[in-house]
Amino acid sequence: MSDTPAIELKDVSKRFGPRWAVSRLSFTLAEGRSLLLTGHNGSGKTTLLRMIATATFPTLGEIALFGHETRRNRAELRPKVALLSHANFLYEDLTAAQNLSLAAQLLGAQAPAAKVKELLERVGLGARAHNPVRQFSAGMRKRVSIARLLLKAPRLALLDEPFGELDPSGITQMEGLVRELQAQGATVVLATHLIEQGKALTQERLHLEQGRKERTA
């Protein structure tokens, strides 16, 4: 593993609408380490994860992933980073298989169809592969998003409330997934209210309060 940290925030602030959602936040996370991100609703967790995922960019300050500043290097960074969030990025009127196959083709995958089939089997949606996402429950949508995350095999995985909306078997599967990503050397940031589960999976912790760093452990 190299010396450059997977995530480096330098005095990052983000204005969201007229308000500051994240205020002067700095931290680094070494590659291969995992971070538990906690905080109340509205504390800036989602905004922070979206910034790290290059979905949006800091108003002030800089974020660097693997030593590359995000705003200028978004094209190179995006294939390496995956975000699992409330907004599931799925097209409601396409089937699960079509949604995933679009993602696979955009990543330039070889034999996307076979890969998509295999992944849908893995997340337990093999039988519903050709149903439109509109007919899916929230938990099933999450499973499709998980399949898309696996497809990308990211070096940095950002999981925003990954356990939400999942049934107990889904939660166990999700934990297995996080461990698998970690075993592959991926850096994981996990934002969750289930602090005990989160602690078991991560080595570091960042608690946000009104967009500020409250404590690290």
Binding site: R74, A75, R78, A87, A103
Partner: peptide, 18 residues
């Protein structure tokens, strides 16, 4: 509207697509 429904447009950008 279909791109805004689940923020799919952001999803496309992160997928990534230029």
């Amino acid at each position: 509207r279909v791109e805004a429904e689940n923020q799919s447009l952001t999803g496309l950008l992160l997928a990534p697509v230029d």
